[in-house]
Each structure stands twice: as structure tokens, then as C-alpha cells.
């Protein structure tokens, strides 16, 4: 249970907001749940709802609305390539396709080992450093800019190594 396992972290999160508006903590708590379970499960939604005195459906609506929350398990690591207009003008679509082809998947799919999902996402505010992607992993989100197929594949190898030694 999140409430027991992360009691002090939850307390720190709640302290950011006025006690009568603790609903504000729902987004950081959803990140916490996602970190713990890999995605936001129905049970996790209930846990978050219970901490804040909300209804599970209210929490579920937020999970559906915001793109960085997932209610289904996919790759442990999500390589999210920005293919919005400015990046597309600098070869991001070709980059994403080449990466997928190399991994033997289509855009939006997960590698057979369940490790890596490659997705196209909207603007990440790094247009001058295209092609770029963010790596979303359980611990957080990190940017990888000015990428080539080679640098991206190197990262993939590193992730696989990390898992096999993990």
C-alpha cells in the first residue's frame, strides 16, 4: 500500500498545498503510484482516491486526461520521440521510423521482451535539438537531444544491459 510504504513522501507532497485543498496533491500522488506499479492500476487509483478523500472515478478521469499517466502496462522504458512540426522539419519522423525498424516494431509498439515502447509524442520544448526524445522510465523522465540512430540504439543496448544485470 502506498499510504504505508511512502508515508513520509506522501506527507511531504501534501504539505505543498493548503490542508483544505489536498486534492491538489492528486497529480504528484499519481506519479508516485506509477513509479511503484509501473502504470496506474485500478487499485492504485483507489489508493490515491482514499488518501485524498476523492472518488476513484475522479482519479480515473485524470489518468485518462493527462498523457503522462498510463492505465495499461507497456514497455518498462518508453522512448517518446517528438514528431511535431519543428522536429519533423529536422528529420524526426525519419528518425523514429528508423529506430522502430531497427527494433523490429512499429511506432507505438513494444519490443517482444516487453522492455521498450517507441512512441511519437507532441512538442517537448526542445525543437532546436531535434531529433530528440524523452525516455520515460519508472524513476522519471529524461531528455535525449540531438540524436542519431546510432546514439539511440546505444541507449537501447544500455537499457537492455541494465535489465539483464538488474
Amino acid at each position: 500500500m502506498l499510504a504505508e510504504k511512502y508515508a513520509s513522501e506522501i506527507e511531504r507532497i501534501l504539505a505543498k498545498y493548503p490542508p483544505e485543498h489536498k486534492r491538489s496533491a492528486v497529480m504528484p500522488l499519481l506519479y508516485l503510484a506509477q513509479r511503484e506499479y509501473g502504470h496506474v492500476t485500478q487499485e492504485a487509483m483507489q489508493e490515491v482516491a482514499d488518501i485524498l478523500g476523492l472518488d476513484r472515478t475522479e482519479v480515473g478521469a485524470l489518468v485518462g486526461f493527462y498523457t503522462l499517466y498510463y492505465d495499461e502496462a507497456e514497455g518498462k522504458y518508453r522512448i517518446q520521440v517528438c514528431t511535431d512540426l519543428p522536429c519533423a522539419l529536422r528529420g524526426a519522423e525519419e528518425f523514429a521510423e528508423a529506430l522502430c525498424e531497427n527494433l523490429g516494431i512499429r511506432l507505438g509498439e513494444t519490443t517482444p521482451d516487453g522492455l521498450i515502447t517507441v512512441e511519437a509524442v507532441k512538442c517537448l520544448a526542445a525543437c532546436d535539438k531535434a531529433p530528440m526524445f524523452q525516455l520515460q522510465e519508472p524513476e522519471g523522465i529524461h531528455y535525449h537531444e540531438e540524436q542519431t540512430l546510432e546514439s539511440a540504439l546505444k541507449l537501447v543496448e544500455e537499457l537492455r544491459r541494465r535489465e539483464s544485470h538488474g
Binding site: 511535431d84 512540426l85 507532441k122 512538442c123 520544448a125 526542445a126 525543437c127 532546436d128
Partner: peptide, 11 residues
């Protein structure tokens, strides 16, 4: 919440 395509100054 800098998210406008083409905008990367606040970052």
C-alpha cells in the same frame, strides 16, 4: 508549462 510547438525559451 512551455508546450507551444517551436518554443523552448523558458526551459
Amino acid at each position: 508549462d512551455e508546450s507551444e510547438p517551436g518554443t523552448f525559451k523558458d526551459r
